[in-house]
Simulated scan of single mutants.
Amino acid sequence: MTGTLTRPELTAADRCDRCGAAAKLRAVLKSGGELLFCGHHGREFEQGLRDSEAEIQQDER
């Protein structure tokens, strides 16, 4: 059986790792971990995430 692992869509239960607001952006790190950010913190940290080669998988801002 082959398949691709996908992460679930963001829901109202997903919260920003920085402030606890509703998550609007999911970033997957090279190590496989993930970070969730609200729109505000997503904008604040987006360039740093891209510089560290994190993959922005969902952006609902």
Rank of each mutant, 00 (worst) to 15 (best):
E34I: 00
G3V: 13
F37C: 07
E53Q: 14
V28K: 13
R43V: 06
D17T: 05
A13Q: 13
A21Y: 10
L35N: 01
Q58R: 09
D17K: 03
K24E: 01
G33K: 11
L36D: 00
T4D: 15
H40P: 06
H40F: 11
G3P: 11
D51I: 15
T6H: 10
E9C: 02
G48H: 09
S52G: 10
L25R: 02
L49T: 07
R15W: 10
R7C: 11
A27M: 02
R61D: 10
D59V: 03
L49I: 11
G42Q: 01
E44C: 12
E9T: 13
C38N: 05
K24C: 03
L25W: 01
I56Q: 01
R43F: 02
T6C: 05
K24P: 02
I56A: 06
D51V: 11
R43S: 06
A54N: 00
R50L: 10
C38A: 12
D59H: 04
P8C: 13
F45V: 14
T11N: 02
G48L: 15
D14N: 00
L35Q: 07
R26E: 00
P8G: 10
R7V: 04
A54Y: 00
G3E: 07
G3R: 07
G32S: 04
E34H: 05
Q47H: 15
Q57Y: 00
L29M: 13
R61F: 13
D14A: 03
R50P: 13
